Structure formats: C-alpha cells, structure tokens
Simulated scan of single mutants.
Amino acid sequence: EIMLCYPGTIAILYYRLAHSLHRLGAPFLARLISDIGHSLTGIDIHPGAQIGGSFFIDHGTGVVIGETAIIGQRVRLYQHVTLGAKRFPADDKGVLIKGVPRHPVVEDDVVIYAGATILGRITIGAGSTIGGNVWLTQSVPPGSNVSQAQMRND
C-alpha cells in the first residue's frame, strides 16, 4: 500500500532512480524520469539534489527541491515546502552560471512543516524544526525552532 499509494514515497523512488542516472552522466534521462515522478505526485525533486537515507515527505503536493540542495538523514518534509534558490548567478555578460550551489543545506533530523519556503545557500542546523508557512533566507543553528511571528493582543 505504501509503495503504491503514498505520493511522497513514490516521488522518492523516482528521485533515487533519476539521481543514479544523473550521477552516471545521463542528465536527460534523469530529468525525464524526474518529470514522470513530478507528474504522478505533484512533487518536484531535481535529480541533482543530494538526499540522505530515511527521508520522508508527508502528503507532498507542491514540494520543490532544487538541483544543489543537500538533505541529510532522517529529514521530514510536509506538503508545499520549497527548498529553492534566491536567484541564478550570472557572469559579467549576463549568462546564467549553472552548477553553483544555490539551494539550502538541510542537516540531519530536521522537520519542515507545510508551506515553508527556504531559499538560498543557507544551512538548517541538525535537529531544527521549521514551522508552517515560514519564509527563511538565513541559516539557523542546530536545534533551532523557527516559527512565524506571534501577534500580541494588548
């Protein structure tokens, strides 16, 4: 049931195959398989991303993981999480430079809740929790708990 009905598990299976092909020097085939997984699940994982074991995506629709993202062990993501780039660097002629690390590093044992957007080459320290709908563009140390600002009713 899990292998057939859970989109997060299905997306990870497609990613693992696509990542292997990407590392073997077959980027077109890797992107094709990645796109099939995206079409089936609504989860977009670039085959160049580096993802550790025991990775879990719960629900998953709308998850985006960029090409240079690095994800550690035992990381959990919920739906609509983006691990993206702030911008694509360009050379002095305006030509985009590919392959430059521009996506987040998520260390081991991190939980990222629904709707969080994490942008740029920042690090989410091990054991951190990132709350739902958080917009994050700065690194956080291990053990952090990041949530939206609370409104005061004085």
Rank of each mutant, 00 (worst) to 15 (best):
D108H: 14
V110L: 08
V106W: 09
G60S: 12
S54K: 13
I36L: 12
A30I: 01
G99I: 05
K98G: 03
T41P: 11
I33Y: 01
P7E: 12
E107G: 00
V110H: 00
A18S: 15
V140W: 00
A69W: 02
G42D: 03
V146C: 06
L29S: 11
P27R: 04
Y15C: 04
H19E: 01
P101G: 06
I36C: 09
L136K: 05
A90I: 10
L21P: 04
T61D: 02
A11F: 02
I12F: 00
A26F: 14
R74Y: 09
L29M: 13
A18I: 09
E1M: 13
V106Y: 04
A49T: 03
K93D: 13
R31W: 06
T61Y: 15
S144Q: 03
S128P: 02
A85Y: 05
I43Q: 07
A149E: 14
Q79C: 10
V146D: 10
G53M: 12
M3C: 04
L40V: 15
P142R: 01
I112S: 04
L13N: 15
A26W: 13
Q150H: 14
L96N: 07
Y14T: 05
R74G: 02
C5N: 12
G62M: 09
F55C: 13
S147F: 11
L119G: 12
R23N: 13
R23M: 08
V110M: 06
T82L: 14
A26Q: 08
G42T: 05
I70E: 13
S144R: 00
D35E: 08
C5E: 08
T137Q: 06
D35A: 10
F88I: 12
Y113D: 02
I124M: 07
L4P: 00
Q50T: 12
S20P: 00
Q73T: 12
A149Y: 08
V75E: 00
V95Q: 15
P89Q: 06
V146K: 02
R16I: 01
D35M: 10
S128H: 01
S34C: 02
G131M: 12
P141C: 08
R31N: 14
Y14A: 04
I122G: 13
G53N: 15
G127F: 05
N153E: 12
K98W: 09
D44E: 15
E67C: 03
T137P: 03
M151D: 08
I12R: 13
L83Q: 11
W135I: 06
L83W: 05
G115M: 06
K98M: 07
G52M: 14
